[in-house]
Design a protein around this nucleic acid. Structure first.
Lengths: 217, 217
DNA sequence: ACTCGTTTGTTGCAAGTGCAACAATGTTTA
DNA sequence: TAAACATTGTTGCACTTGCAACAAACGAGT
């Protein structure tokens, strides 16, 4: 993981924040914070905390569009937050700052060395976010609940290289993340338990099947 | 859309390509070109042409993971091309070059002004790609074929601000892009035609329902 | 310890979907 | 032009899923 200020001195960090007209915010857990990034081209960087972007469409279907952790970014262009259907919610106490990313590309004063480092860090963070997005697409392109669960379990287990998974959210949220009905997912989890494919103890899940290790090919 | 070499002189373009040890390739239509980006951290930039990244999983389910058009990038980190299940296919005659993107962040010689411009351009292109990914996730998070179709139609129509859509691929591919069974999609399209929600003439689709315009809120 | 609200598990049922198979139409190539 | 191949439309059927409703378990706060 890359920090947005890697290899940048505190002094220069302040200069950058000033140049970008960055605004710093602090929020308590479970706050709606959509307004701060409603404007086009706004980005937010999470210094500390954890945020979810939720979409609730006309049918009432709730989807967790993004989870944003520390040292990650989100924003209007990135998150397609163009409709009233979105909610941005802090799931922990959160510190973040916002800035207009077009300034990076347009500002002429931004050719200092430290500013280039900033751009490179941002690039790196974006690359990592792209990976997450692709994982998400791989999961959602599975056609059955079972396969979405197994794909998700596989990805999460491979991240830590073990057969154990600690869910970052509850099962209701997991269903909304996988894009399936909660009760149907619960049913499928029961089947997987019966078949001894998995063990579930609270938010700890143990995989009993042979994982598909992406690194081996 | 942004070109990777916007605001960079031809002379400096060459310097950048040399510094990145970029390799240029040219392919005919319908070629498998996976090998060139198998290595970690490799990126490819499409100068001319059109490419699809296809995934065929154990169940035989075919999914169009990405469409990559001119002035766009793709690569291992970006596309999670870590398994044998992927195919990268040119759908038109294609010119592209590959480079190791880690060089951008690590190379110390890269602090020339033109190189920073290059980094900024790459950042911009990544932002645009992120938008596409989010659109994709919005589509795939819909639970019915009908809603996926309508979401897709809405997005495409809004891009050109009209009620007409010209499909960039055939209906078989559309099904693989939306992550649904082709015949089931065909059935649903028939229903939509019957209900006079859409008109279909070859690859031209006319929307007869009120579009949901994202810009209006 | 009790209460209230949230999360989880379960089940019946209707609806939607994937799959297979086949005919019809379009497109490419020899 | 014919033959070979790819794409599209259609339909029956089994199975998966979403939805609704409810009970049980859990957790936070008083």
């Amino acid at each position: 993981m890359t920090n947005l200020f890697d290899k940048i001195s505190v002094k220069n960090q302040e200069k950058i924040l000033k140049l970008l007209e960055a605004h710093c915010y602090e929020f308590k857990k479970n706050n709606q914070i959509l307004p701060i990034i409603k404007e086009e081209n706004m980005l937010a960087y999470i210094v500390k905390g954890y945020i979810q972007i939720i979409k609730i469409d006309q049918n009432g279907t709730r989807t967790i569009m993004e989870e944003i952790e520390e040292e990650e970014i989100f924003g209007s262009t990135i998150s397609a937050l163009k409709t009233k259907e979105f909610e941005v919610i802090t799931k922990e106490d959160t510190i973040l700052f916002t800035f207009d990313y077009q300034r990076i590309t347009k500002e002429t004063e931004c050719d200092k060395e430290y500013f280039n480092q900033f751009t490179k860090n941002l690039l790196q963070i974006l690359m990592e976010k792209m990976k997450k997005k692709n994982e998400r697409i791989e999961i959602l392109s599975k056609k059955t609940i079972r396969n979405r669960l197994l794909e998700y379990f596989n990805i999460e287990a491979n991240k830590h290289g073990s057969k154990y998974i600690y869910l970052p959210f509850n099962f209701t949220d997991l269903a909304d993340y996988l894009g399936v009905d909660r009760s149907a997912m619960s049913r499928e989890l029961s089947h997987l338990k019966e078949e001894k494919q998995i063990e579930v103890k609270g938010k700890k899940i143990t995989l009993l099947f042979e994982r598909y290790n992406y690194k081996n090919n």
